[in-house]
Amino acid sequence: MSATTSTYDWNKTIPIDQVGVEQRVDRLNSRSIKKDSKIQALKLALSMIDLTTLEGMDTEGKVIQLCQKALRPHIEQPDLPKVAAICVYPNMVSVAKKELQGSGINVASVATAFPSGMATRKIKIEETRQVVADGADEVDMVISRGAFLKGEYEYVFDEISAVKEACGSAHLKVILETGELQTYENVRKASDIAMHAGADFIKTSTGKISPAATQPVTLVMLEAIRDYFYKTDRMVGMKPAGGIRKAKQAIQYLVLVKETLGAAWLTPDYFRFGASSLTNDLLMQIIKQQSGVYQGPDYFSKD
């Protein structure tokens, strides 16, 4: 069990107005990012990608290929930034670790019975220990949504604390699976629980259910991070995941971060995109910006 205890009354709800959140996002989306600032954003987004493969069909070969892509997103442009991390299932951690050794790219593993989280705490802890032992730098855990929705907030808190402890020096990203949380108030509450329980990152979604990441949900989480930072001075990272496929979306997310939390969060240390197909769209847009010519997908390797 965790040594930390929550001193918070989790039954208290922080009110959030849905229409207000969505209007704020609309307004942020009206930012027009052009020229230098666009290239800068595209490269920044590329550096923030957690290049992800989480399929039952994943093979060692596929993971190795993905690692190659992570190292050199576009072979013709060796100067482009590397992605931040590779995100895989637990049994692929050692494969990825070997491939990325010394590259500066982190290996992230999902754990705690991803994506459902429907396992006993004991197994979740063991799984966490195992992926860390196999070399994972980052652990993406899922919260027990069922317990959360039933109002068992202490349970959720304790579980995150326990997994955090099991992570040791590995970074913990806590997936809230916001698509199952119903309301922005719940997203906010789950964010607060995760941060107080020690999360290094909070993350929207597993990518396995719809809706996955949305900008309003992300804004609510960023605002939770901001309040937590105001209070504790600890910077918690943010990772929207799932459904972010286009460069334009990625830039919109960066605008959200910039105008909510500021520049300190505009680094892979504090902001990530959980995505796979986003990489190539970013590349296409970068090349377009450089060459002035609209690009076609066949000129970019799929993985």
Partner: peptide, 11 residues
């Protein structure tokens, strides 16, 4: 406490 005018500026 925040650096809201940081390095990424809109062109």
């Amino acid at each position: 406490k925040l650096d809201l005018n940081g390095f990424w500026e809109y062109a």
